[in-house]
Nucleic acid binder design. Structure first.
Lengths: 193, 193
DNA sequence: CCAGGTGTAGACAGACCTGTCTACCCTTTC
DNA sequence: GAAAGGGTAGACAGGTCTGTCTACACCTGG
């Protein structure tokens, strides 16, 4: 989330990945070249290619980190910390999204972004699909904890609301999280036993 | 002005645009180069640049055609032809989406695609946002015809369902249209007077 | 002391891409 | 019959990008 490049004391591998995370997150994959990454990270080109044999490998490492930082470290963690009741934890996702959409550095979802930028058959696109499925898995777990009917089906419907609100936010509608949350409430009510 | 149509081929302008429509629709903007378009269309490079001063201009013309063909010529037209009741016309959108997602040439939404590929500040990205707003406008009109409360707000929520199902379909979930439709039913029920 | 691993700096190859330009062809119109 | 306009074919300029390569510097451990 920090835009500052780390001090040169940290090791090169980490510095490259942190820089790539920042640049890829904000501007996408195609728009960020290797040359910009090495310059921003303060690293020689040979060093980057020693740690990451190709740009695709760097992108894959970036997506893995995105899951750690965004999916688990931010969305899941925040949702769980904001409420005790599992239903409220689910609804809290859209409170978090609301803050996300209204923040300055909202740049649309990295996973959707890469999926559309690279296509579903490209290795990085396939990886994005995998990480999006994991997001759905987090929702399914919460749905189980909330003792909702058909947690897998619930998670798929909930996922539609999450993805839809992200796209609508990218379109410019900053109030979209509240609308998605309202539909989420209806969906929860329908899945109660 | 002349009504004479030369036997060899159709109008070059039309041939270029039709080829660009096909290639851009299926593979995205960045992945399709000018050289491929002129070769596929069977046209000289100078001819393309005579009709479209730059690739961006060609993309803008492509997006305009996409609205004509897809938004109005297909989704809106089909939805209206499949039901008389406005509420059923709205729900029919997801029947159409269902067939779309399951068709061989489903390639995700062009407008979302271009928006994510080019970014919201690029002219073509801005145009995509405009055409997505027009899709929402079609929904709002149908909502008015169905005499639903707050048709604009309804259309925004409905739009979340549409966008979400498209992304989930791109992710590989082919049953997503049915789930979106079920949530659509709930949303309609909530907006009845 | 020196060998190996890690780093820097930057030139360079090779493959793309968009957009321009020349040179020529063919048809229609005045 | 000449001019004009639209078309073809393709070279070319100028830019981008990834990835390789050379040459050198600095530790650190044996």
């Amino acid at each position: 989330m920090s835009a500052t490049s780390p001090p040169p004391t940290t090791d090169a591998h980490e510095r490259i990945l942190a820089t790539a995370y920042d640049l890829f997150s904000r501007r996408g994959i195609q728009a960020v070249g290797i040359d910009e990454i090495i310059e921003t990270a303060g690293v020689a080109k040979a060093t980057l290619y020693r740690h990451f044999p190709s740009k695709d490998d760097l992108v894959l490492a970036f997506l893995q980190r995105r899951e750690d930082v965004w999916t688990h470290g931010w969305v899941e963690r925040e949702a769980r910390s904001r409420a005790d009741d599992p239903e409220d934890q689910l609804l809290a996702i859209f409170d978090i999204f609301d803050e996300w959409f209204k923040s300055d550095d909202f740049e649309a979802s990295v996973f959707i972004n890469v999926l559309f930028e690279m296509g579903p058959s490209h290795p990085t696109g396939r990886a994005s699909i995998h990480y999006l499925e994991n997001v759905r898995g987090v929702v399914a777990t919460m749905a189980e904890e909330a003792d909702l009917r058909d947690p897998q089906g619930f998670a798929r419907s909930w996922h539609i609301l999450m993805q839809g609100s992200i796209v609508c936010a990218a379109e410019g509608d900053v109030e979209t999280a509240k609308r998605a949350q309202a539909m989420g409430r209806m969906l929860i009510a329908q899945h109660r036993r």
